[in-house]
């Protein structure tokens, strides 16, 4: 550690402003455009305004879940409890609102509170007990699943099979000013998360903790509070997606959250966030979520069989990671 060679040449300002992390975000959105073009070639009409909006709307659910996943992965964690926290929130919202618009807001609040509670417990187990994130969130997923199924007797209770209140359905499927309202909600979330990550002290602390817990602790950052808050947020975002999906899909079903574990992690990773934490941004995740969804839509447009989707998912993730990984010697 003591040769002149340890002092690398000073990087230029431009290269740092357009660092690899930011470039990945740009690549992500470029990939989205390319996929829409490809889709339109394979199936003319794929990339019309309404076609694009539909794809984006489906992306928004992945995007919501992946917002929380981005937060925890930024500090080197992972949230495997997403599927059943999402599912539990959807069930609770449906049961609480029980089809009436008057009860909807209370239902949403309770659902989000439950998401927050699960997330906070995750965070406490990880930050205070020192349980590895994989184990803690895996266990909590089971707990959420068992509670959801047990309490509702396998989703056979009277309240939990009710359709979602019409207000919610309209919100999730309707349009405002020619744009899907759900997309506008997602845009708001994107703006908020971006603001938090880039322009607040909390966001700065998230990156600090993600870079080094030890250094952050020694510099006076309350690492435990940050960790718990992030897992709490992840729970809230999963719950939010649950509520949105229940409104979009017409109710709560068993296993509705299952696809979102894989997709949320994939979106984060495709978006260029480093799995060991400290580097990445939600904007990348947004690109990742849209890439994944567009890809599936393109496949569906070509009438590819079901199993092909899984295979393509896997191949795409690996190829993208191989591209990112090239020239990076760490990890």
């Amino acid at each position: 550690m003591s040769s002149t060679a340890e002092t690398p040449p000073t990087p230029s300002r431009l290269r740092t402003t357009l660092n690899p992390d930011r470039r990945k975000i740009i690549y992500g959105f470029a990939a989205v455009v390319a996929l829409f073009v490809l889709g339109d070639i394979l199936k003319p009409g794929f990339a019309t305004a309404s076609g694009i909006q539909q794809v984006l709307q489906v992306s928004s659910f992945v995007g919501l879940v992946a917002a929380g996943q981005t937060f925890v992965i930024l500090v080197g964690g992972i949230d495997l409890s997403v599927p059943w926290v999402l599912n539990a929130a959807a069930i609770v919202m449906i049961a609480q609102a029980s089809g009436s618009n008057g009860q909807l807001w209370l239902g949403i609040v309770v659902a989000l509170a439950i998401g927050l509670a699960f997330g906070v417990v995750n965070g406490l187990g990880i930050a205070l007990l020192g349980v590895p994130a994989v184990v803690m969130t895996l266990g909590m997923n089971g707990i959420a699943q068992g509670l959801s199924l047990g309490v509702t007797h396998g989703l056979t209770c009277s309240g939990c099979t009710k359709p979602p209140p019409m207000t919610l359905v309209n919100l999730m499927t309707g349009k405002t000013g020619g744009i899907y309202t759900s997309l506008l909600i997602w845009l708001a979330v994107i703006a908020l998360v971006t603001f938090v990550l880039s322009f607040t002290t909390f966001g700065r602390r998230v990156y600090a903790v993600g870079n080094s817990q030890r250094v952050s602790h020694l510099a006076g950052v309350n690492v435990k509070v940050v960790t718990v808050a992030l897992y709490g947020l992840s729970g809230v975002f999963a719950a939010m997606a649950g509520v949105a999906l229940a409104g979009f899909g017409g109710g709560a079903t068993v296993g509705m959250g299952d696809p979102y574990l894989f997709q949320s992690i994939a979106a984060v990773v495709i978006g260029g966030t480093y799995i060991l934490g400290g580097r990445g941004h939600y904007l990348g995740t947004v690109a990742g979520a849209i890439v994944l969804t567009t890809l599936v839509s393109v496949l569906l447009a070509t009438n590819a069989p079901n199993y092909a989707r899984d295979i393509v998912y896997g191949v795409v993730i690996l190829v993208i990671l191989l591209l990112y990984g090239r020239g990076r010697s760490e990890a």
Partner: peptide, 12 residues
Amino acid sequence: SEGLLLSMAVRE
């Protein structure tokens, strides 16, 4: 390992 966040900016 205990003092600096190496990949973050001097300012940060």
